[in-house]
Structures are given as structure tokens and as C-alpha cells.
Amino acid sequence: MQLALVVAGAPLLAGWVKSVKARLQNRRGPGPLQPYRDLRKLFMKQVLVADSASIVFRAAPYVVFTSTLLATAAVPLAVRDLPTAPVADIMVVVGLLALGRFFLALAGMDVGTAFGGMGASREMLISALAEPATLMAIFTLTMSAHSTNLSTVVGFQLTQGLVLHPSYLFALMGLVLVAVAETGRIPVDNPATHLELTMVHEAMILEYSGRHLALMEWAAWLKLTLYGVLIANVFFPWGIGETTDPGAFGIGLAVIVAKLALLGLALAVSETVLAKMRLFRVPQYLNLAFLFALLGMLSFLILEVAA
């Protein structure tokens, strides 16, 4: 139920970011519903597959989509007590996203063009450097909650009430930087570019068409939403429903939609004011993310744990 909502809502978030961004740049962009139209169009179209592609190329969209989907299923959206949460803790979520990325990169290399290989190579570099920062930020969170189950972490945050944790502040900053890198937004990657030399994500899915492309795009939007929900619910859990009854669910849903809209707004603003950086600046950027997360860990250990 919750999952269906996320899946249905993910294109909306992407569309929202896009249209806000267009507004900020004094353009009259497409409405926030445009991604749905794109999806419908792509699903109707015929699939063209390069003749050099193998079975991996055709299986990859499904793997990418389902693994992202499953990862999303483990993240509490509107209510805290998710029946699917114990199936996969946050490490498994990270693992599932990595599985999707693995196949995405393989698909990029499958056709045998230079672009695909280039995109795959860059994507793997970025994700490799983002991984320790992600883990460190997650460690900071899970060590104070003593659990890696997302439901438990969110619950811990709620029962604790408003407490200012310096470690959370740093972990949040680190995780935001990582999320921007992982979802391929400016300044690490530009989802709107089709200039060959600057593409990362787009270069890998260059050969896709029809429903394959639709699945790939949808998975990318889903990932964006996942990170948004993760950040919103773990760091600012207030408003999330405690029980599964419809009332609490409704309130929780309204709150999370508002939170996501705000995050989307922030993303659009930052994408407008920032420029994409060179690929070899990205390591420094992710180093900064790691530094934040490490500082979060340190300040957790120094300031917050009883010795």
C-alpha cells in the first residue's frame, strides 16, 4: 500500500523539482505531471535494442527497477511500523541500491559503445567514493539508536523528542551530499544534459528505448524519492504515523508530502545556483561528505556517549 504510493508518487517529485527549477530560471517549464505523460508515451512505444546487446542489456531494466523498488519497500513513509521493514535493514537497502547500480553499469557496457563504458566507469567511481561516507553517516545514526532497522531508528528519534545532536547535524550534511551524488543531480551529474562528455547516468542509459527506458527513468526517480524520504523521516521524523489506522496514515502521508515538497524545493534552488563540477573535483566533494560523516561519528563519540 505504502509502496504503491511511493512508486506512484516518485515521478511527481521529479516533475516538481523540474518545474520549480524552470520557474527559478525564469522559464515556463513543463508542469509537475509531465513525467507521467513521458512514462505513458514510453510504455506505448516500441522497444529498439542494439544488435550488439546481449541478454544482460534486456534484463538490466527489470533488475534495476525491482531492486530499487524493494529498497523503497523497507523505508517507512507515512507510518513508522512497516511490516516490510524487518525484512531489510538499512544496510540491505544500501546493498540493493548497489545491486541496481551494478546492473546499470553492466548495461552501459553491454552495447559496446564508448559512451556506455564512460558512464559506467564514472558511475562506479562516484559510487565507490560515496560508499564510505554513506556508511559513516548511517553508523552515526544507528549507533545512537543501537539498531539498523529503519523503523526502530525512526521510533528512537520520535521517543527522544527534540534533542540537538551535533552528530546528527554532521551526518545529515554528509548524507545530503551523498544523496546528491548518488541520485545524479547537479553538481555531480546533470540529469538534463545530453552533452556526451559530461553525462554519467544518461550515458549509461543512452541505448535504451521504450518500456526499458521507462523503467530505468522510473527507477532513477524512485531512488531520488527514496533518499528524500530517508532524509526526511530519519532526521525529521515528526508527523509520521505511529499506528496503521487510516487517520494516522492520512496525517503521516500529508506530512511526508509536505516534507518532500520542501526538500524538492531546496534541491531545485541548489541546482539553480550551482554549476556542475569537473569529474575530478567529485572526489574532493565526496571527501568532504566523508569528512562530515566522520566528524559526526567523532562528535557522537566525544560529546554524546557516556564514557
Binding site: 527522544q160 523528542g161 527534540l162 534533542v163 540537538l164 545532536h165 551535533p166 552528530s167 547535524l169 554532521f170 569528512l291 562530515f292 566528524l295 562528535s299 560529546l303 554524546e304 557516556a306
Partner: peptide, 26 residues
């Protein structure tokens, strides 16, 4: 020491102190 036992201004002191450290890194 548990952060939850402290009052809000005291928590704020910690956050700010951590930020001082962050500025050092910057």
C-alpha cells in the same frame, strides 16, 4: 552523559562547539 538529560541551551552549546570544530576543518 546523556544528551536527553540536558536542557536545550546546553545541547545547543554542544552543537555550536561541534561547529567550531567543523570551521577548523574548513
Amino acid at each position: 552523559m546523556n544528551l536527553t538529560q540536558l536542557s536545550l541551551p546546553e545541547q545547543a552549546i554542544f552543537v555550536l562547539a561541534a561547529l567550531v570544530l567543523l570551521v577548523s576543518f574548513i
